[in-house]
Design a protein around this nucleic acid. Structure first.
Length: 658
RNA sequence: GCCGGCAUAGCUCAAUCGGUAGAGCAUCUGAUUUGUAAUCAGAAGGUUGUCGGUUCAAGUCCGACUGUCGGCUCCA
């Protein structure tokens, strides 16, 4: 984790100070129970705080009451958070004696993480301790005045975390808690959390019968869309197809797999092989062994090639062409041995090949190829998360090939498409994040094209500024092939996700040798915009479930209308069935509940299923040519002539009313 | 992938110290004929995630695996 700057610290809110102080109080408590505990970092986070601790005893939630009791003693004591300025020499001495992050000196148990933290404090910056009671911690603050200011707290969770967030470092125990000024606020927070849990798409998705994960027969992270979920999938596709058609896109369809050569050309192999499903091999016997040898050599040379390019070593150009020749020869030999097919992890290479399928003129650009393409990514098992992070994903994908002159207008049009969608769905809490490169990453993390980076980043920034979109700029987060804009949203339980993305690519079309013939009769490489405003069905619908808490607007609702009858007389049933048939004839998803349950039970069932519109039909409705309308969550809204109600429903669906 | 928790009927959950696996909802059958959130009765539903171990005896204790949950790492 990055160290907070002094500026950032000065800007900490009162609640953050309080929670940071709560972390010190917790450390104090843990030390009273386990004096040899070593602490690393203990910052405030969005909904509380944590402290990373290295301790032989494995802390479990069963230990929480004891820790909380000690914390209570510390807040009752109402000790002052005393700031102490020390010299670096003194701090190192105290860390070595085990005094830092301790209640006393601990011979033979130096404050190893605090020593590490000390090293990260730049020379010249003031080194400070904060002391409450016997507990002294290396800390830049700020804190509340006294431990008693931490009015209400609760430990919530224990997890593990790598020291400094690096996989290679030892794992520490991360104890999470939350703290508030008083108990009332804390109670409100936990009540809100309970509400949020009810919105969790995994819970609602199962209850509403939208999707299942058949981990036994299909596999983890491979959702099966049930009929009701498929309705939402198809409504979203309809929206995308209409919107994209109007915006001048053309649709394509591509297979779910491709030969190895595709991903060697795109640059995804061998470097990203581990996030792809292993290949299907159409190779036999001895040839397989030879294939492995060639693989190894290919990987080795590929790496060397990348290094030479990255370092910009012009003097090694001869070696480069040697490598290129050898790579070509390997490719040819592999072709003779047999083939390997990979499931696609992205659609761009297939689209690039469609671009390459015909000679292109500047007159053909911009060419906007759209596809709801199904991709497969072998996400790490620990990363799978309901619909939000899966291994098979249907992307609202499109690639726009354009000239540099066309770029600004195209990029802007894509952004406007985002905003149009977000308005339809009523998204309010989202963040547009503009990710740029960093000079030190050129040739390593990013393709080594400083001029193109500057050019495209300026173009994107200009579009953002001139269109007045609210965004934040993050350096050193770009894709390896160009700058991008991600749209971040937060799930019901507060996890952050990229819901949509808009990326510039000035590198991969070149690798595929894509060109168009320009006005001046020269061949030029097009710019490519990758965009997915509706992200993937999986993540987008996962998010929509939580956004609407399962109460979808009429146009998206899996079951739009349910007709509930009062009584079983033949004429009444005919009248009710006629309403359902008229609606279905107009493509409205209407069902009938003609059974003999009491109306209260039928209503309870329909409400529980979150049916958008319920039409109650009894004898008096039939006689008047009416239907009695009840809206999910809103209750009875009264009787209406049948024809009028049907017209209303059709209009609301057509307009995709919220 | 790493650390830890969890896994009982379709769902939500019980089952005392290791001693014959139960309930509500949903499902099915029958009765009930109803005006805005649940009519009554009966039936059916299980190799307690899988495999192995300890024991006279395992849902319960131990181990491995799989899945899942919470984090970490990762996310072109």
């Amino acid at each position: 984790m990055e160290r907070k700057s002094l500026d950032q610290r000065a800007q900490m809110t009162d609640l953050e100070r309080l929670r940071h102080s709560a972390a010190h109080v917790m450390a104090t408590a843990i030390l009273r129970l386990w004096p040899d505990a070593q602490f690393a970092a203990g910052p405030p986070v969005d909904d509380g705080f944590y402290y990373d601790v290295d301790l032989k005893h494995r802390i479990t939630p069963e230990d929480f009451p004891a820790i909380e009791a000690e914390m209570k003693k510390e807040t009752k004591a109402n000790n002052i958070f005393e700031k102490i300025v020390v010299t670096r020499e003194q701090a190192i001495k105290d860390a070595e004696s085990g005094r830092l992050g301790g209640l006393s000196e601990r011979p033979g148990n130096p404050s190893k993480f605090k020593l590490g933290n000390l090293e990260k404090i730049p020379a010249g910056e003031e080194i400070t301790y904060f002391k409450n009671g016997d507990f002294i911690d290396l800390c830049a603050g700020p804190h509340v005045m006294r431990t008693g200011n931490v009015g209400a707290f609760k430990l919530t969770n224990v997890a593990s975390a790598y020291y400094l967030g690096d996989e290679k470092n030892p794992q520490l125990q991360r104890i999470y808690g939350t703290a508030f000024k008083n108990k009332t606020q804390m109670d409100e927070y936990f009540a809100m959390l309970e509400e949020a849990k009810k919105r969790d798409h995994r819970k609602l998705g199962a209850e509403m019968g939208l999707y299942v994960m058949d981990t036994e027969y299909v596999g983890p992270g491979l959702p099966l869309w049930l009929p009701k979920g498929t309705v939402i999938v198809e409504e979203l596709e309809k929206l995308a197809k209409e919107t994209e058609f109007a915006a001048g896109y053309v649709r394509v369809k591509t297979p779910h797999l491709a030969k190895e050569k595709m991903y060697k050309t795109s640059g995804h192999l061998p470097y990203y092989a581990e996030s792809m499903f292993p290949p299907m091999e159409l190779i036999e016997g001895d040839e397989e062994k030879r294939q492995r040898e060639l693989d190894d050599e290919y990987a080795r040379l590929g790496k060397e090639h990348g290094e030479i390019l990255g370092l910009g070593q012009k003097e090694r150009a001869a070696r480069l062409s040697e490598i290129a020749d050898r790579l070509k020869a390997i490719g040819e030999e592999m072709g003779r041995l047999g083939e390997r097919y990979y499931l696609k992890a992205m659609n761009c290479p297939h689209h690039h090949r469609i671009f390459a399928a015909e000679p292109r003129s500047y007159r053909d650009l911009p060419l906007r190829l759209a596809e709801y393409g199904c991709c497969y990514r072998y996400e790490q098992s620990g990363e799978l998360f309901g619909l939000m992070r899966v291994r098979s994903l249907n992307m609202n994908d499109a690639h726009i090939y354009c000239t540099p002159e066309q770029f600004a207008a195209e990029f802007n049009a894509v952004n406007e498409m985002y905003l149009k969608y977000f308005k339809i769905f009523g998204f309010e809490k989202y963040q547009m994040r503009f990710s740029t490169s960093a000079p030190e990453g050129l040739g390593k993390k990013y393709v080594d094209e400083p001029a193109l980076w500057k050019q495209t980043e300026d173009m994107v920034r200009d579009v953002l500024v001139s269109s007045g979109i609210n965004y934040v700029e993050v350096a050193n987060e770009a894709a390896f092939y160009g700058p991008k804009i991600d749209v971040q949203v937060w799930s019901a339980i507060g996890r952050e996700f990229t819901i949509a993305t808009n990326q510039v690519d000035f590198a991969v079309p070149k690798r595929f040798g894509l060109v168009y013939k320009d006005r001046d009769n020269t061949e030029k490489t097009p710019l490519c915009i990758h965009r997915a405003p509706l992200g993937t069905h999986e993540r987008f619908i996962g998010f929509l479930i939580e956004h609407y808490a399962g109460n979808f607007p009429l146009w998206l609702a899996p079951e739009q209308v349910r007709v509930l009858t009062l009584g079983e007389e033949e004429p009444l049933l005919n009248y009710a069935k006629d309403v359902v048939n008229q609606l279905r004839a107009q493509q409205v998803r209407a069902e009938g509940d003609y059974g003999n349950d009491p109306i209260k039970a039928k209503i309870a069932n329909a409400e529980k299923a979150k049916v958008h519109t319920m039409l109650v039909i009894g004898g008096r409705d039939m006689e008047a040519g009416n239907v009695s309308v009840r809206l999910h969550g809103k209750g009875n809204v009264g009787a209406k002539p049948k024809a009028e109600m049907i017209a209303d429903i059709l209009a609301a669906i057509r307009e995709r009313r919220a």
